[in-house]
Design a protein around this nucleic acid. Structure first.
Length: 693
DNA sequence: AAATGGGGCGCC
DNA sequence: AAAGGGCGCCCCATTT
């Protein structure tokens, strides 16, 4: 089932269609600098200015600004201006008008109201205007916070919903023209002016919900500029390496394809689940699981399960094919291709550069989503937050005098230590295996390390702080293994299986996992799983008592908040006629708080990093933000400055909150690429490999 | 040819 | 009656 479904009702009831708009409003084409100067002068005392750029397209590297739309928060709020910047025909005020407007914003300290602010800020920066010096409020944020279940609320949808305005469609402005540059400015005036007016009029609705979201709302707006800068800086990609991986995988894929076809007795498309089901039926391979459309499931988990019962060689080959095919199609091929197509690609060095877009108004819990923007080649069409992690293996560690570098895929020198897959010592750490290592394609600049810092056990620490669960709190305080401690308290003893059970439940509870799933996972009888879950709940009393209270409160109020005020409206789900949808509501009530609080904390850490490190002249040449994956932040750090920069990163991320007993802790990994990072302990200014127990 | 829905799978 | 939260992309099959 899709959540929210198509008939989803917005938390805020829709406004009645407005009779005012557009008849009571004025739309003015500003066709001379004199007029523009006069208009700005007349409005030099207003506090807010809503503005919006019309461009020839979405890509700031390839497209240009054609018009600036404006609406001032003055007495009537009813005039939308269109300032033509650069059109094919008709008046154009060019760069001068933009510069004048920027000066106006700076000099009179205007607060800018933008809708999807990073888009306009990015174009302004490319035109040479420093947007860090401008006070900006993104109206879209509060509109989204009004109901975060609604993803990326567009300006036109929001104007319709909150104001009852019907906006002109972009395609009707464009007509048969290629882009807005070809359209006559007077034809763009209404479209542009109403965008700015809608932004202005939406602002008062938006502020209400932003304010309600307290610190989380503030952070969402505060992070806009750094987030834009993070997106603008492309990541360095090792195209030669990925090209090698591409060849290797392609060969293996066609080998497997041949073997599978031979076993089937004829050629077929393995990627077609229909054809695959047909073949499996003929081979007598039934997974016993079906999709809701009635087709037999052929996913990896059910294949794995079937392999446990039926050791048919077809299954092994099929599973390997699926993994290889996924890796190739979703990651290796597109990464290689986009990096080669990138403007900064250098064939001799094999360096390519890719940008990744982060979406801040998509995931209802407040996490960032990561992916492409439709038809915008500025960003690569890859989800940076889902690049495969290679399997893990043991690496041996010994001190070395050799310089820090990647010696080979099996040997890496980092900060005076050699990490090798060969047994060179007794000391060992666990890290990614050299095989199938897509992340090795992400490399820092020469003379820089790839530094990865992630929040330690974030999804367990947060509920511990919120619920005060004593067993977990003690385990955290004493630095003990949380899963073993939980298992010990339940069973009175611990072994590998008992710890694994406890671990699955520990993580599963945040998602509202049922005992049926647990039974399935561990291949145990349902009643046994049920008994275990009962014991589990009885052991972690405080945790589950909080969960019950929290769910009741959520049902009563129809909304839950993260520890920092981010709302998730669940009324629609709680009141739905379908028990499945209602159950989804209760699971989301718990999960939104845990996942959302984690997202709030990462955003706060990023803002702190920006203010104290990344945007500070003193450190600018020595550290750069590379990427983030929910609870992990990655940096390029100059090797010679590592011991100076690393403590600052850690300090920014190990946040303490007065209402929480346990502070955030981080784990540090250092390497010469994202694929070969090794865990280090950092104490008293000294780095030592974090050895296996 | 482009859009859409479903199944599948990568990450946290 | 179903049974695990959040995301985006690939591929197939079908519709427009």
């Amino acid at each position: 089932m899709k959540f929210p479904s198509d008939d989803y009702e917005h938390y805020v009831p829709p406004a009645k269609p407005s009779k005012e708009f557009p008849d009571d409003f004025g739309f003015v084409l500003v066709d001379s600098m004199e007029d523009f100067i006069r208009i700005l002068k007349d409005n030099k005392d207003v506090d807010y200015v809503a503005w919006d750029l019309e461009t020839t397209g979405l890509n700031p590297e390839e497209n240009s600004i054609v018009a600036l739309a404006l609406a001032f928060h003055n007495k009537n709020n009813k005039v939308g201006y269109c300032v033509p910047i650069n059109f094919n025909k008709g008046p154009s005020l060019h760069y001068d008008a933009l510069a004048l407007f920027y000066k106006f914003l700076r000099k009179y300290k205007k607060r800018s109201l933008l809708y999807n602010a990073r888009f306009d800020m990015r174009f302004m920066e490319i035109y040479g205007f420093d947007m860090d010096k401008i006070s900006v409020y993104d109206v879209m944020l509060g509109i989204w916070l009004a109901d975060t279940n609604v993803k990326f609320p567009s300006l036109s949808a929001s104007a319709r919903h909150f104001l009852g305005w019907e906006m002109q469609e972009y395609d009707s402005v464009l007509g048969d023209d290629y882009n807005l540059w070809y359209v006559a400015p007077k034809e763009v005036t209404f479209y542009a002016g109403s965008d700015a007016l809608a932004t202005l009029h939406l602002a008062k609705h938006s502020f209400r919900y932003l304010k309600e979201a307290k610190l989380a709302g503030k952070i969402d707006n505060r992070i806009l500029y750094p987030l834009m800068k993070f997106e603008d800086d492309p990541l360095r990609i090792d195209v030669k390496y990925l090209g090698g991986l591409l060849d290797e995988y392609t060969n293996r894929q066609s080998e497997l394809e041949k073997e599978i076809h031979i076993m089937a007795g004829y050629d077929f498309n393995i990627n077609s689940s229909r054809q695959l089901v047909e073949v499996m039926m003929q081979l007598g391979l039934n997974t016993g699981k079906y999709t809701k459309t009635g087709q037999m499931q052929t996913s990896l988990p059910v294949l794995e399960k079937l392999e446990g019962q039926n050791n048919h060689p077809f299954l092994e080959k099929l599973m390997e094919y699926k993994r290889i095919n996924k890796s190739l199609g979703s990651y290796i091929k597109p990464l290689t291709q986009y990096a080669k197509e990138s403007k900064q690609y250098c064939e001799s060095t094999g360096d390519g550069y890719l940008r990744f877009a982060y979406h801040n108004t998509v995931a209802p819990t407040g996490r960032f989503a990561c992916g492409s923007e439709d038809k915008n080649s500025y960003f690569s069409k890859i989800n940076k937050q889902s690049i495969p992690k290679p399997s893990e293996r043991i690496w041996y560690v010994a001190p070395t005098d050799e310089p820090s570098e990647e010696v080979s895929l099996n040997e890496h020198n980092i900060e005076g230590y050699k990490f090798s897959t060969e047994r060179i010592s007794e000391d060992a750490v666990e890290a990614f295996s050299p095989e199938a290592n897509v992340r090795r394609g992400f490399i820092p600049y020469d003379d820089f390390y790839w530094v990865s810092v992630d929040f330690s056990k974030q999804e367990l620490l947060i509920p511990t702080n919120i619920t005060q669960e004593p067993i977990w709190k003690t385990a955290f305080k004493e630095g003990k293994d949380l899963h073993s401690e939980t298992a010990l308290k339940i069973f009175g003893e611990v072994d590998k299986h008992k710890r694994a059970l406890a671990k699955t439940c520990n993580f599963g509870l945040a998602y509202g996992m049922s005992h049926h799933t647990l039974a399935e996972r561990f291949d145990m009888p349902v009643n046994e799983a049920e008994k275990f879950v009962e014991d589990f709940k009885g052991t972690l009393k405080e945790l589950f008592s909080w969960m019950e209270r929290h769910k009741r409160k959520a049902k009563r109020e129809g909304v839950v908040y993260t520890s920092f005020g981010r709302p998730r409206r669940l009324k629609y789900y709680f009141e739905h006629e379908s028990p499945q949808v209602r159950a989804f509501g209760y699971r989301s009530a718990v999960n939104s708080v845990i996942q959302g609080t984690g997202a709030d904390i990462m955003k706060m850490a990023l803002v702190k990093l920006w203010d104290n490190l990344l945007n500070v002249d003193e450190y600018r040449d020595d550290v750069r933000f590379a990427s983030m994956v929910h609870d992990e932040a990655n940096f390029y750090v100059r090797k010679s400055k590592l011991l100076e920069i690393l403590p600052k990163i850690i300090d920014c991320m190990e946040l303490k909150f007065p209402q929480w007993e346990l502070p955030m802790e981080v784990d540090v990994e250092i390497g010469n690429s994202w694929g070969f990072c090794f865990p280090f302990d950092f104490k008293d200014g000294v780095l030592t490999p974090k050895l296996e127990d």
